Simulated scan of single mutants.
Amino acid sequence: MIVLGDEQLAAMPAMALAIEAVEEALAAKAAGLLIAPPRHAVPFAGAGSLVFTVGGSMGERALAGFRAYETFAGSRQDQVVAVWSIATGRLEGVVVGEQLGAIRTGAIGGVAIRRMSAGSAANVAVIGSGLQARTQLEAASIVRPLRQVRVFSRNSERCRAFAARMGARLKLPILPESSAREAVAGADIVICATDSRVPVIEAAWLKPGAHVNSVGPKTVDGHELDLDIALKAAMVATDSIEQTTAYDAPFFLSKAAAAVPLADLSALAGSSSARPVGEGETTLFCSAGLAGTEVFVAAKLIAAYRDRLEAGRSNTWGSHLF
């Protein structure tokens, strides 16, 4: 059995592997083979919750697994993902630590960018400077030939640190901006990865044909995007319509459901690299966290690590540290 932690993931091309795994999970969902019920939270008397997702797939190479993570106050957000083979009943491996959840969410965002943004998209705006912003940007750099990135964060010091760190990592010019509006102006792709419960960008700021990924809060009680962006979009998609109906508070688009129908990312037609709507039309992806994707990602990473060990090669791939 393989046990992987953050140190092992940091030495692997984890995001590229995770994007492959998410594509496979979405294909399983489209074929009706994905097991992906909404997440379940167990509260601990106001201190936070333990949150569980169970998922996997049927058919060839069937997988089953779970993810458990916490929402307790603290500087870490550790989690556990376990993967079983349904055919053998074998526990294939376990992934522990902070990184996998952000990598999985980044990979889902990368697939959304691949399927929903213009193939020529090269300029990115990032609103936020935390771990989710980093993994979303890394995924974008894998699926699109990026030329320039502009970033805004309410914490100017963190904004500058993000620009320096990710610019060196991705070998891209990344410019810190003094406002979200300046960052968004002219961007082909806009990544919102904040914890803001009030809108951080406006529809009027977006260029025609921009694609927006939203990772942060998205209930009627608080949402990082204004409803006008969804109303402007020619297509609004999510990775889990089931999850959007299972939030504690209603999904932020629920009051405008007739005007803003949600598409399922797994069902989008066309090639994996072509935008499914007109080149000048805005698109929006609302990341909900499709259950089962973490099991696919963990399984892909475990298999890659095992293959490398069995081939007698080093278990490192070079530096991929965040």
Rank of each mutant, 00 (worst) to 15 (best):
A73F: 09
A267P: 01
V42A: 06
M116Q: 05
M1F: 09
V111P: 04
L4N: 01
K218G: 11
E7L: 08
S129H: 02
D239N: 10
R90H: 15
H223Y: 15
R154L: 11
R275W: 02
P276M: 03
T71E: 08
F251S: 01
E70F: 10
F52V: 09
R114Q: 15
T135P: 00
L33P: 03
Q148M: 03
A164R: 14
R150A: 03
D221P: 13
A16H: 08
G5V: 05
R306G: 05
G48M: 10
K171M: 14
K255L: 14
P37I: 08
D264N: 12
G65C: 13
L33D: 14
L227G: 09
A163I: 07
A185L: 06
A303T: 08
W205F: 04
L91K: 05
D228G: 09
V3D: 03
F252C: 04
N213D: 14
A180G: 07
F52R: 12
D6E: 12
G32H: 11
G289F: 00
D221G: 12
I142P: 02
V80F: 00
L100F: 05
S287A: 03
G93Y: 07
A62P: 09
E20Y: 00
E20N: 10
A62Q: 06
L309S: 13
Y247P: 04
D221C: 10
L321S: 13
A121M: 07
R275E: 01
V42E: 12
A11R: 13
S272L: 11
G110Y: 08
G93P: 04
Q99W: 11
M1E: 10
A304Y: 02
L131W: 03
E310D: 14
A102I: 01
G109I: 00
L50W: 13
T282Y: 04
A25D: 04
P276C: 05
M15L: 06
L284D: 00
L63D: 02
A18E: 05
A11L: 09
V80M: 06
A28E: 14
A161I: 13
S178G: 14
D248A: 06
G74W: 05
T245L: 08
F252W: 07
A234H: 09
V143C: 10
G101C: 02
G270R: 07
G89Q: 11
L26G: 04
V126E: 02
A11T: 10
E7P: 11
S272Q: 08
A303R: 15
